[in-house]
Amino acid sequence: MSNNPNNWPLWEVFIQSKRGLEHKHVGSLHAADPQMAIENARDVYTRRQEGQSIWVVPAGAISSSQPDDAAMLFDPADDKTYRHPTFYTMPEGAKYI
């Protein structure tokens, strides 16, 4: 990332394709301020009516886990199959359960 203050900062872009759905990450772009980032995102990411709402977040504000640590990070869920409904034996004939 450049530290030159004359360069426009980087923004991560999230688009909600339809009311009721979550905003999804689609990519990033550079812009001088949030308003310009939203307008640029409209021009870059919704040219074919892909969205009805846009979020932009300064890229530097996003903290991320390390992909290399994934095995260790997600390890606690590995041995807990009882969190799934299929783990349980249901009596023969019981409905809607």
Partner: peptide, 27 residues
């Protein structure tokens, strides 16, 4: 309300084992 509906979808998915574990105990 969108955010409430989205929270409920997630909750229902996770909760599907809750009722079954209870019924299993009773059975």
């Amino acid at each position: 309300y969108g955010p409430y509906a989205r929270a409920m979808v997630r909750i229902c998915k996770e909760e599907s084992f809750h009722q079954r574990q209870g019924y299993e105990i009773m059975a």
